[in-house]
């Protein structure tokens, strides 16, 4: 975390060296201007395709990023594109990738696989997702979810089922209920600015009510305190 006025370790470069290591030393400095912190190791994030002509993707940030054609993995391990791009990726499609940063601050994205994005459910959760190395979590209730670093959340059916089911087959009502419940819980936690999540069981519809939302948040905060203490 970086805040103005905070003491930070800064690499001082000696004689033309551009990289920390030999010939550099560490100094502590007060941050008094706007700086950009570039992550050493970029995390995984989900995104949505905006335009197919230039392959721009929305990443829940100020600027759209570009998807480099060279970093797209075609389905089935195809090496050459035999049909128009739109047959592979359409506007609104979801993808999941690693993030690469260009030196000028532009974001480039790297598709890992198209499989990730073609999900059963996707919901938006702004900035209250704790960034981590691993985006895929198994929630305490035994349900998997994927929280990406940029705040996009992907909830999907249990893995065994996912492989059985094709893309367009429908889910069980109970699975659907769990996904809806988790979605409402996550949104409630995000609305109350809590970073972690522990689903508490309520009827799904009730979580839309602010009172219940507050209760969930209170319970979660208590649990968090207990864990820390």
């Amino acid at each position: 975390e970086l805040l103005p006025g905070k003491n930070t370790l800064v690499w001082k470069f000696v004689s033309g060296l551009q990289r920390p290591g030999h010939g550099t030393y560490v100094d502590e400095e007060k941050v008094d201007k706007l700086i950009c912190v570039r992550p050493l190791k970029p995390g995984k994030s989900h995104s949505r395709i905006c335009t197919t002509e230039t392959l721009e993707v929305e990443t829940n940030s100020r600027l759209d990023s570009v998807l480099l054609l060279s970093s797209v993995n075609l389905p089935g391990g195809e090496l050459k594109m035999s049909s128009p791009m739109r047959e592979y990726l359409q506007e609104g499609d979801l993808i999941s990738k690693d993030r690469l940063c260009f030196s000028d601050g532009a974001l480039s994205r790297h598709t890992r696989s198209l499989k990730y994005g073609k999900s059963h459910f996707f919901s938006l959760c702004l900035s209250w997702v704790r960034g981590g190395k691993d985006t895929f979590h198994n929630l305490p209730c035994g349900h998997p979810s994927s929280l990406a670093n940029n705040g996009f959340v992907w909830l999907y059916p249990t893995p065994g089922q996912q492989e059985k089911l094709g893309l367009y087959t429908s889910l069980d009502l109970s699975d659907r209920e769990v996904i809806s419940r988790l979605r409402n819980c996550l949104l409630a936690l995000a609305a109350h600015k809590v970073l972690l999540m522990t689903p508490v069981f309520f009827t799904v519809k009730d979580i839309l009510k602010p009172e219940v939302m507050e209760e969930i948040v209170m319970l979660t905060q208590q649990k968090l305190l207990e864990q820390e203490g």
């Binding site: 999900s119 367009y168 009502l173 809806s180």
Partner: peptide, 19 residues
């Protein structure tokens, strides 16, 4: 996206919407 549309459509068919 197409997959999300399918999810929403099926949910409405089963009388349980996304939220």
């Amino acid at each position: 996206s197409e997959a999300e549309k399918v999810y929403i459509l099926h949910g409405i068919r089963d009388d349980l919407r996304v939220d």
